[in-house]
Design a protein around this nucleic acid. Structure first.
Lengths: 128, 128
DNA sequence: ATTGACCTTCCAGTAGCTGGAAGCCCCATG
DNA sequence: CATGGGGCTTCCAGCTACTGGAAGGTCAAT
């Protein structure tokens, strides 16, 4: 399998796959012409990475999760720990965005949005 | 006012203030020794930027908002338009995060988090 | 032989800073 | 007057996770 096939089958852009090789997440062997050749195992890892990234895990988290996945001696507590840490980060981000959203939506409501220059949004940003 | 004073009064790190000068958001004049000298107007702009950034506006949005703020001929509709665009982006991010959160929280619930290797989180990432 | 779709590497850029090095400047103290 | 400490300067590199593009090699079909 060349990179294009893997890209199609994993849903990851070829550029991303090369990048993942660069940072050591996958190690596809090379064939005589220098092309990367992917086996099912690499495809599987890339699909794993794609799903983990889709859940918002950082690359470093992905590296950890992949290592745990391949470690038969792992304890599910280790995995859960990584996931819980990530969940907390997500919750923080949601809270921050919702706080911004609240302020912003309020300001937008107050703003006439007409042809006149008076604008409560700018007034707020200017500190009244 | 030197950069340290402005940093204290605006709450922005000195590094950030220099960066904002770099990208043309403020233009503090220089005194004989090469130091930036800030007047009230620059401090005011920086505080404006700090508030806009705290609401999550991008630097480019900030640039636009600052220009509108300084333009007496503006129409509040222009400001509202920028704010509404930003609100939509925030809503998209919140939705995405909440979707991730949902999946992740579900997986975490399923995971025993004990000393055994069996882990539904990893199973899900591996595609079952 | 040539075309076109692949593949390769390498460099640069994205957003918004942040850290650190090397080196002036200014004021206060001894 | 020398020295020390804090503040200021510039410049370069690094962070996250890719993405775009250039220059060039490879392969299969016509």
């Amino acid at each position: 399998m060349n990179i294009g096939d893997v890209s199609r089958r994993s849903g990851l852009p070829a550029k991303t796959i090369r990048y993942y090789e660069d940072i050591g997440l996958v190690q596809p062997p090379r064939s005589g012409n220098g092309y990367r050749t992917f086996r099912e195992i690499e495809l599987h890892k890339l699909a794993f990475l794609g799903r983990a990234r889709a859940l918002g895990f950082t690359i470093e988290d992905c590296r950890t999760l992949l290592a745990l996945y391949e470690d038969d001696g792992r304890e599910s507590a280790q995995v859960k720990n990584v996931a819980e840490g990530h969940l907390r980060k997500i919750d923080q981000k949601i809270a921050q965005l919702q706080s911004m959203r609240g302020t912003l939506a309020h300001l937008i409501e107050e703003c006439a949005g007409d042809h006149l220059p008076d604008c409560p949004i700018l007034e707020d940003l200017a500190g009244e």
